[in-house]
Amino acid sequence: MKVVSVSRDGQHRFSKQVTPAIRLLAGLGVEGDAHAGTTVKHRSRVRQDPGQPNLRQVHLIQAELLDELVGKGFTVRPADLGENILTRGLDLLGLPRGTKLSIGADAMVEITGVRNPCAQIDNFQPGLLKAVLDEDEQGNLIRKAGIMGIVLSGGEVKAGDAIHVELPPEPHFPLERV
């Protein structure tokens, strides 16, 4: 379980820019990223209630999703889908809410929920929204566009850093949209 790439963007754009390292700031998010802060920064959520807590400080996607999308004919590279941290070898969508991820030497992120992909993803590449949605055996919607978290402990994160998982106490609760 490791970090494949890291990215940030100081503007509210769909994709971010890959960078050699990012700095996570406790209680805020990714230094220099448009979504950093204690209150929500996602534009549609700010319009609803700008004072709500920011449960989307860090966006993580598993590289295996990019592999799957490339296999379906899409052109997607690290940071294209707006993630801050691209991982490999870790089933992000299978983690319960409240899982803590130790990343690199010092950083720790607590998982708050799953990203709900919006129609903007089809503006990036037509058909991509449908490709990042799926159904389980019971017909429940599966959102595959990554998970969101808050920064508990700050620190530098870069490609190649190890990721260690600490599950919350049971009972475990599945990820919901945040």
Rank of each mutant, 00 (worst) to 15 (best):
I61Q: 00
I121A: 05
I85A: 04
G27W: 13
T112H: 05
K144F: 02
V132T: 10
I61H: 01
K144G: 04
E64A: 11
L152M: 07
E170Q: 13
K16C: 01
D136E: 07
A105W: 10
S153N: 15
E170R: 11
P174R: 15
M148T: 10
R143N: 04
Q138M: 14
P117I: 04
L128H: 02
G98K: 15
D122M: 08
H164Q: 15
K72C: 08
G94D: 12
S15L: 10
V132H: 12
G155M: 03
V151G: 01
G127K: 05
V151D: 08
L93P: 00
I163K: 02
G149S: 08
S153P: 03
L28K: 14
I142L: 07
R77C: 04
A63R: 00
L101K: 02
A34K: 01
V178P: 09
L152R: 03
P168L: 12
D134M: 06
G146Q: 03
P169C: 00
E31M: 11
V132S: 07
A26E: 08
M148V: 03
D106Y: 06
V18H: 06
A21H: 11
D9S: 15
P96W: 12
Q11F: 13
R143A: 14
E31P: 09
L141T: 10
Q52A: 15
V30D: 04
T112I: 04
R56Y: 05
T39N: 15
E64G: 05
R47G: 03
L129F: 10
Q52V: 13
A79P: 10
G89P: 05
I103F: 02
N116Y: 05
R115I: 05
E31A: 13
L133E: 11
Q125R: 05
D134K: 05
